[in-house]
């Protein structure tokens, strides 16, 4: 199915991009499915930015959006073209880390503006997008995106870092195709950006999980 609705972490926060041409009913439907699949995972009170350059909404459509978002404890606001936004990310206070106390299964997704700590695994097909760092107490086998709003100093730490894809800010690294040839170390590892590329090294900071 074609995606008419895309959530995107950008330098200025969580953005919602709507297709310019798709039927609004379809958009609401797809949006609902996205919100449903990520229930509880959008932080409450989070403000989603909808660039108006993308699509002009009628008052009625705006109301539909507002009430749908409200069902999930979210708000939205219109912004101008995202690329020329003058908002400073640093001006917003850093939110408290979000702590998830379960394993993320395939198809589940977390989006959060701050750091995310997961007490469990991130399984294949699951996705974590965080404005800050990501720390996973178990295995990371899915997709992790730290520093999603552009913070290149963000890191991803997991007891077993075997993610299919790691993203930090705008840099993407994928797992090697011949994973079987690699011996998985039994120590906690951290991914960070060095010289413009994602590198993985033994974790400096020992996170302790109970």
């Amino acid at each position: 199915m074609q995606e008419d609705v895309i959530f995107k972490g950008s330098k200025t926060g969580l953005q919602l991009l709507l297709s310019e041409t798709a039927d609004f009913g379809n958009i609401i439907q797809q949006l609902k499915e996205k919100l449903e699949s990520a229930t509880n995972f959008f932080s409450k009170g989070c403000i989603v930015k909808v660039p108006i350059a993308n699509r002009v909404l009628t008052t009625e459509q705006q109301q539909q959006l507002t009430s749908l978002f409200a069902d999930y404890g979210l708000k939205w606001k219109e912004v101008q073209d995202p690329s020329v936004s003058d908002e400073q990310p640093a001006a917003e206070p850093t939110p408290k880390p979000m702590i998830i106390t379960k394993t993320l299964r395939g198809g589940q997704e977390i989006m959060y503006s701050g750091a995310v700590i997961i007490m469990g695994d991130v399984n294949p097909g699951a996705k974590v997008t965080a404005g800050g760092d990501i720390v996973i107490s178990g295995a990371c086998r899915g997709v992790a995106h730290a520093g999603a709003y552009g913070d290149e100093k963000a890191t991803i730490t997991a007891k077993r870092l075997i993610a299919s894809q790691l993203r930090i800010a705008d840099v993407i690294a994928r797992s090697p195709d011949n994973l079987d040839d690699f011996i998985q170390p039994d120590y906690t590892e951290t991914a960070c950006i060095k010289d413009g590329a994602v590198v993985i090294e033994p974790a400096k900071q020992q996170y302790t999980f109970n």
């Binding site: 229930t39 299964r105 395939g106 198809g107 399984n123 294949p124």
Partner: peptide, 13 residues
Amino acid sequence: VRDADRIIGLLES
């Protein structure tokens, strides 16, 4: 196994 994982998540929710 991937699909089973997805199902476990959906059951949980």
